[in-house]
Each structure stands twice: as structure tokens, then as C-alpha cells.
């Protein structure tokens, strides 16, 4: 009697496992890769966040890194760190909707296959391909103050020179502006998504006399919600980790462009004392923020419409 009872639970589990093991087999590459290349470094970095590891030795264990991150006394580290978080959040809040809106509009404009559309799409995508190290040089040449190219041209037509990246007041807006040159990348994703909207839906709606905006809001956008969602998550994760500006703008005037990912990098590798432990602690705080935001996005994602598939 007892043997049977045990067997039924174990057996059920085993039978369930046998049915499911094929699923796990598919995921094997990821599991192996994750355990080796990701899990181990992640756990190490979590451990390091409680130490003063400087890439060679650990001398102290404790919560001091986390204490420092939340230390808001005058000159305390917390002030600068959360200023970095604030800057990054501001950047995300402004650039994500702007970017998505602009790349979506661009995709809508380039959707219809007029002659030469392939070449035109390529041309819009070209700025995305410029290597980052070169992009920096180009922008500093163009937007230098007062001798940059744009300022020279403004002067030629009688407008005052703009301080662009040289002034704390204008550097942030300038950065948001030049980020828009990358909308070619987003455009591709939208074009793929727009192709997926079945033409039959449009035809049916047109029979009923639908307007352009009606088409947009009642058919196109709802059908694109999986991609909108994907883009949103991806953009949040990307914007909170923005780093490339460091190569050519450093941390900005008065640290006005000192985003949190850049701060993590300079704490770990910049300067003369590598405070790797503190950098790990900062990274985990950042990770927590991203995780919370993503979690909220998922929990409130009932607006995503997956069509005729499982959800």
C-alpha cells in the first residue's frame, strides 16, 4: 500500500519529466552556456559586491559598498550615484518614446514599395553602420564650439553659435538629438512588423469606409503590439545601459552625461584604483531597477495581442 503511494508521486513526476525532457533538450545550449559563461560570473560579481575586490585580492567583507551607494551626506557617494541614475532615467524617458515614434513614422513612410524603395531603406540604415569610434570623431568635428562645422555654417547665415556639447545646459538636448540618427535600426523592426498585418484586414475595413487614422489605431497598432512590447523592453534595457557616449564625450560638462553604466565602468576600470567590488554593487542595484521596471511592464502587458496563438 505504502509503496504504491510513493510510487504514484514519484512515478507521476518521472512520467511528467519523461514527457518534458525533450523540451529541456532543446534548451540545452542555453543552459550550458548560461551556467558556464553567465551564471558563474554573475555569482562571482554578487560575491564581489560585498567585498573591496580590486581585481587581484579581497581584503574586506561587508556591506560597505551598499552603504556607500546610499550615503547621502554632503560629499557622500550616494549623491553622485543617484544623480547618475536620474540622468539615465531622464534619458530613457525622453529618448525611448521619441525614438519609437520617429522610427515608426519612418517605417510607415517607407512601407509602400515605390520604385527604388530598397535603396532608400538602405540609405536610412547607413548611419547605423558607422563604427562608434568614428561616429564620435564626426560629431565632435561637427558640433564643436565655437569652431565646429555646424557653428561655422550658422555663423555664415547670421545665426548665433550654439554651445552643443561644450555647455552643461545644451549637452543633454544635443545628445538626445544625435541619438535620433540611429532610427534606421528601429525602422527595420517596424517594417518587419508592419508586413505582418494581413492585407485582408485593411481591405475589409476599407469596404466599410475607414479613415487613415482609423486604419492606424484600429488595425495597424493593435496588430503590432507584440513588436511594440518587444521594442519597449529592449529600449528600456538599452537606454538604462547607455555607454557609447563615453568614448567621445567622456562624462560630459560637470558630469552632466555621466550615465550609470559609464559610472560602473569608470569605477571598475577607470582611474588608478580599481574598485571592482563597488562597481559590482552598483551593477546589482542597476539590475534590480531594470528588473523591477521590466516586471511591471510584463504584469501590465495585457494590452499585447498575440493573434491566434497561445498566450
Amino acid at each position: 500500500m505504502r509503496a504504491k503511494k510513493n510510487d504514484s508521486r514519484l512515478g507521476a513526476f518521472l512520467r511528467g519529466a519523461k514527457k518534458e525532457y525533450s523540451n529541456w533538450l532543446f534548451m540545452l545550449p542555453f543552459i550550458v552556456g548560461f551556467s558556464v559563461f553567465v551564471a558563474y560570473p554573475i555569482i562571482m560579481s554578487f560575491v564581489y559586491s560585498f567585498t573591496d575586490f580590486n581585481a587581484i585580492r579581497i581584503k574586506n567583507y561587508g556591506f560597505f559598498n551598499y552603504e556607500n551607494i546610499f550615503d547621502f551626506s554632503a560629499y557622500g557617494m550616494g549623491n553622485d550615484i543617484w544623480k547618475s541614475f536620474g540622468l539615465t532615467a531622464l534619458y530613457a524617458v525622453i529618448s525611448i518614446p521619441l525614438n519609437m515614434f520617429l522610427s515608426f513614422t519612418l517605417a510607415m513612410a517607407l512601407r509602400k514599395a515605390i520604385p527604388g524603395i530598397r535603396g532608400i531603406r538602405l540609405l536610412f540604415y547607413l548611419p547605423v553602420l558607422i563604427p562608434g569610434i568614428v561616429m564620435g570623431q564626426i560629431w565632435t568635428d561637427m558640433l564643436g564650439h565655437p569652431e565646429g562645422l555646424i557653428n561655422q555654417w550658422l555663423g555664415a547665415i547670421g545665426l548665433p553659435a550654439n554651445t552643443f556639447f561644450s555647455s552643461e545646459k545644451t549637452q543633454f538636448a544635443t545628445l538626445i538629438a544625435i541619438s535620433q540618427w540611429g532610427i534606421g535600426g528601429g525602422m527595420i523592426v517596424w517594417l518587419a512588423a508592419l508586413e505582418n498585418v494581413p492585407k485582408t484586414l485593411y481591405e475589409a475595413a476599407e469596404m466599410d469606409g475607414i479613415t487613415f487614422f482609423g486604419k492606424l489605431f484600429k488595425i495597424t497598432l493593435p496588430m503590432c503590439t507584440p513588436i511594440i512590447f518587444y521594442n519597449l523592453i529592449g529600449s528600456i534595457i538599452g537606454a538604462l545601459q547607455v555607454f557609447d557616449t563615453y568614448a567621445y564625450l567622456g562624462t560630459g560638462q560637470n558630469n552632466g552625461l555621466y550615465f550609470i553604466s559609464i559610472r560602473i565602468y569608470t569605477t571598475a576600470f577607470g582611474g588608478r584604483v580599481h574598485d571592482y567590488g563597488l562597481a559590482c554593487a552598483l551593477a546589482w542595484v542597476l539590475f534590480a531597477v531594470i528588473a523591477v521596471l521590466t516586471g511591471i511592464m510584463f504584469k501590465t502587458s495585457s494590452w499585447v495581442f498575440y493573434g491566434d496563438s497561445k498566450q
Binding site: F34, V36, F37, V38, Y40, P41, I42, M44, S45, Y48, A55, I233, I237, Q241, S261, I264, Y265, A268, F269, Y276, A279, C280, A283, W284, L286, F287, I290, A291, T294
Partner: peptide
Amino acid sequence: LATSMIPSTVLQVPQYLL
């Protein structure tokens, strides 16, 4: 999804050792 949320800077040193 979580793996893509991790800032890569921080994985650099242990990954290097690995």
C-alpha cells in the same frame, strides 16, 4: 530575459578569468 538585463561591465573580470 534577465541575462540581457545585466550590465556587461561587471561580468568582464570574472569572464576574463574563466
